[in-house]
Amino acid sequence: MSISREQVQHIALLARLQLDEDELQNYTTQLNSILGWVEKLNQLDVSEVQPTAHVLPMANVFREDEVKSSLPIEKALANAPDKKESFFRVPKIV
C-alpha cells in the first residue's frame, strides 16, 4: 500500500497538524518508506491469531464511587493559554 499526497494531507487534518509544502513532501516520502518497511508483516499468516491489546491478563480494576477533592480553581486554570473569569477560553469555533 502506498500513501498519496492527498492522503497525507487528510491525515494531517485528522491529526490537526498544519503542514507546509516541504513537510508535506517529506512526510509523503517518509511515510511511504516506513509503510513499505512495515509491509514485512504481511509475510505472516495471522488469520488464526488473537490480537493482544493488553499484555497483562487483568480485568475488573475499579474504584469505588467516592468523591475526592478537586483542584482549587487557580490551579485548574494556572496553565491556561487564555481564560476568562473561571473559564478556559478558545478562539471562535466556526
Partner: peptide
C-alpha cells in the same frame, strides 16, 4: 456521586471549573 474516571463531584450547577482535577482536565 463521583465522575466515571476520577473522584470529582458530579453535582450540577457549581461554578465553572471547580469540579475538575488533573484527570478530568
Amino acid at each position: 456521586s463521583s465522575k466515571i474516571f476520577c473522584g470529582c463531584s458530579t453535582s450540577f450547577g457549581a461554578m465553572a471549573n471547580t469540579q475538575v482535577c488533573p484527570i478530568c482536565l
